[in-house]
């Protein structure tokens, strides 16, 4: 009998919550309560099991155009806090957005700086980005009053935050995974081509990730673990 690998998984969802993202946000809402069960079942099929799972959510939009450009939750322990996680997901509203690029790289920066668990072996720190838009260069909106302190000053510094096999300032190299549902557009292309441990699922700009079913999304996440 094959031994199952057991993982301690932290996930950080970076969700573009601008208006066009309604379809995928609705899909996630419909399945939020069963998300833990669905991931567990998919992991079982892949001969893997979960020892622990936590999820947090970052909702991003546009620092220039939106009143709530970057909002974040704490980690939810699943399955114990499945109901709270569902309520959290259901509270997200797809709205706003100014120009077509959004501020996805800032969301990625926050995700990298999550309070990842350091306990247990076989850790996986999975960042999942959902967007149907290209992204501004990091720092594009730095003159805005809401723009936070401490952001990387450019893409190179953000790349350093992500790290590599030689340096891992904020997230363990062996544990980190980036699952990117995003268009083939500048900066997302840079991430895909220059960062390690990235899986890119191209999306069509402006279509709210309509091309991906919930099952495909769960499968993609589980493939990364």
């Amino acid at each position: 009998m094959a031994l199952k690998m057991t993982y301690n998984v932290d996930m950080c969802f970076c969700i573009d919550a601008t208006g066009s993202m309604g379809p995928v946000i609705s899909r996630v809402k419909e399945n939020a309560l069963s998300f833990y069960k669905d991931v567990t079942q998919e992991m079982e099929r892949k001969q893997k099991s979960l020892n622990s799972m936590r999820v947090r959510v970052i909702v991003f939009r546009d620092y220039v155009a939106d009143e709530e450009p970057m909002m974040a939750t704490k980690f939810f322990e699943l399955p114990a806090q499945a109901a709270q996680f569902e309520a959290c997901i259901n509270s997200i509203e797809a709205k706003g957005g100014g120009d077509e690029p959004e501020d996805g790289l800032e969301a990625l920066a926050y995700a990298i700086r999550s309070d990842w668990t350091k306990e247990g072996t076989k850790r996986r720190n999975v960042i999942v980005v959902w967007t149907d838009a290209s992204t501004h260069e990091i720092g594009y909106a730095k003159s805005q009053p809401k723009y936070p302190k401490g952001m990387p000053k450019d893409f190179n510094e953000l790349t350093q935050w992500w790290g590599d096999s030689q340096m891992e300032p904020y997230i363990k190299n062996a544990a980190k995974r980036l699952v990117l549902f995003a268009p083939n557009a500048p900066y997302w292309q840079h991430v895909t081509s220059t960062w390690n441990n990235v899986i890119h699922y191209p999306s069509t700009a402006g279509k709210g990730l309509a091309e991906y079913t919930y099952k495909e999304i769960v499968d993609a996440i589980c493939n990364s673990i």
Binding site: K29, I58, M70, A72, T73, S91, A94, K146, P148, K149
Partner: peptide, 21 residues
């Protein structure tokens, strides 16, 4: 309905401004 968007109050219950790093 909450599944269609929720209210600001519910959103504020779970989310806070991401803040400075």
């Amino acid at each position: 309905e909450t599944k269609s968007g929720g209210s600001n109050g519910q959103f504020d219950e779970w989310f806070s401004d991401a803040g400075d790093l």
